Computed example of a mutant assay.
Amino acid sequence: MKASVYYGKNDIRFEDLPVPEIEDGDILLKMKSCGLCGTDIHKALHQTVTGPVVLGHEVAAEVVKVGRRVTRFQPGDRVVTAIHVPCYSCHYCDRGHFTLCEQFKPTHIEPGGFAEYIRLPELHVKHLTHKIPDGVSWEKAAMVEPIGCCLHGLKQAAITSGCSVLVMGSGTIGLLSAQLSAMMGASTVIVSDLSTFKLDLALRLGIDHAINPAQENLEARIGEITDGLGVDVVVIAAGVSALLPQAINLLRRGGRVVVFSPFDHHNMVSIDAGRFFRDEISVIGTYSLSSYEMPEAVEIVRKNRIKLDEMITHCYPLSRLGEAIEFASNPDNDVLKVIMQMDE
Rank of each mutant, 00 (worst) to 15 (best):
A157V: 10
K155Y: 05
Y88T: 09
S170K: 12
R95Q: 14
T81N: 05
D332N: 15
T160F: 03
A182T: 02
V233K: 06
L289G: 00
P262C: 07
P75M: 09
P213E: 04
L289T: 01
G25S: 06
H42G: 04
D26N: 12
N249S: 15
G153Q: 08
G169Y: 04
F73T: 04
V298P: 00
M31W: 02
Q156C: 02
I211G: 07
L36Q: 05
Q103M: 14
T286I: 10
G174N: 08
P18C: 01
Q179F: 07
V335R: 10
R72T: 05
G35H: 08
T48S: 15
V125L: 07
I236A: 01
D24N: 15
T188F: 05
R302H: 15
M143K: 00
G230Y: 00
D272S: 11
L55G: 07
L180Q: 06
V63E: 00
L205M: 13
D232E: 01
V338C: 10
V338E: 00
I236M: 06
K32R: 15
L243Y: 01
I236P: 10
I222W: 06
T129N: 05
A115M: 02
G76Q: 03
R221Y: 01
T160W: 01
L194T: 15
V231D: 06
L250G: 03
H314C: 10
H108N: 15
T107F: 13
I147Y: 03
C37Y: 02
E23I: 09
L128W: 12
V298A: 04
P121F: 06
I118G: 13
L176T: 07
A237P: 07
R252I: 00
H266E: 14
D26W: 04
K30T: 05
Y7M: 11
G8K: 11
T188W: 07
V165C: 08
I271G: 11
P106F: 09
I109P: 05
V335K: 05
P111S: 02
E326W: 07
F276C: 09
G171A: 01
G223R: 06
D334Y: 14
E293L: 11
H209P: 08
G274H: 04
D94E: 15
G223E: 08
C34T: 03
T71D: 14
L201G: 05
R252P: 02
G96M: 08
Y88H: 13
D264R: 13
P106M: 14
A328G: 07
